[in-house]
């Protein structure tokens, strides 16, 4: 009974479920990528520590930026994304007349950006400050140091947490059905509404989410493994180092 209902649903509504999967993936993926970019920007600037060499104007701008960034992060991490979605969608509807899909992507991106900013910031704090000092001592500016030395390492440190945001977004994009985009949750809800097979429909939906997140974490694990093995031993094999003059031992012969 249960199984045959499931098969019926898959036969009849397969294409609308596929549309749901596609929308969910598009929203989750673009949301994660745009959120990461936003997080890099916000988290990167928040982590910059201006020293006395910076001008009073930069100190002021940095202070101003920090306040705005704090408000942004607090608000978007402290309220449900579902509420953010309805509020932002309707608040801006009269002004920019936007479609639902771009609205959904906008909301999930800035929501993710708030989390990414904190992820990036802690990734930055894990980078040895000695490297920052060395870069400054070579004459690199604050922002050159941040973007050439610190952030590339911070992204690597934070990669597991960044990947996790993608998985979370696959699941949490379901709340965006509140503004009726055709993602998986919305599709499942309409199928259940017309077939009245609630259990079967939501069972299938859960299964699809599980498959999506499993594939995503498999891919992320592979990337992470590959990133770690690039610390390869690229030393010339049998050659030894040609500077062997030992200053101290020479000294003792005298």
């Amino acid at each position: 009974m249960f199984i045959s209902n499931c098969i019926d649903i898959l036969n009849k509504y397969g294409s609308s479920l596929m549309l749901g999967v596609r929308t969910t993936l598009v929203v989750a993926l673009t949301g994660t990528v745009l959120g990461l970019l936003l997080g890099l920007f916000v988290g990167g600037f928040r982590a910059v520590k201006l020293d006395f060499t910076a001008s009073p104007a930069s100190h002021f701008l940095k202070g101003f930026f920090d306040v705005i960034a704090n408000i942004y992060i607090t608000v978007f991490r402290g309220t449900p994304m579902m509420v953010q979605a309805v509020f932002i969608y309707y608040a801006l509807l009269d002004i920019i007349h936007w479609d639902k899909l771009p609205a959904a992507i906008f909301v999930i991106s800035i929501n993710t950006g708030a989390y990414m900013a904190e992820i990036i910031r802690s990734g930055i704090q894990a980078v040895d400050p000695g490297q920052t000092e060395a870069a400054r001592s070579l004459g690199m500016s604050n922002s050159q140091t941040m973007f050439s030395v610190v952030i590339p390492q911070a992204i690597k440190n934070a990669f597991p947490a960044i990947g996790n945001e993608f998985i979370v977004n696959i699941k949490d994009s379901s709340v965006l059905m509140i503004i009726s985009i055709t993602e998986l949750m919305f599709q499942a809800k309409s199928i259940a509404g017309s077939t009245f097979h609630f259990t079967e429909t939501y069972f299938i939906e859960a299964l699809i989410y599980l498959i999506l997140t499993s594939i995503a974490s498999l891919i992320l694990n592979t990337i992470e493994k590959r990133m770690n093995t690039t610390v390869r031993l690229s030393l010339p094999s049998s050659e030894t180092d040609n500077i062997t003059v030992n200053y101290l031992s020479k000294k003792e012969e005298k």
Binding site: D128, G130, Q131, A134, Q153
Partner: peptide
């Protein structure tokens, strides 16, 4: 400047 801990860029 050279430092005790070398401070090479690990990336």
């Amino acid at each position: 400047m050279c430092f005790q801990q070398f401070n090479l860029f690990n990336n």
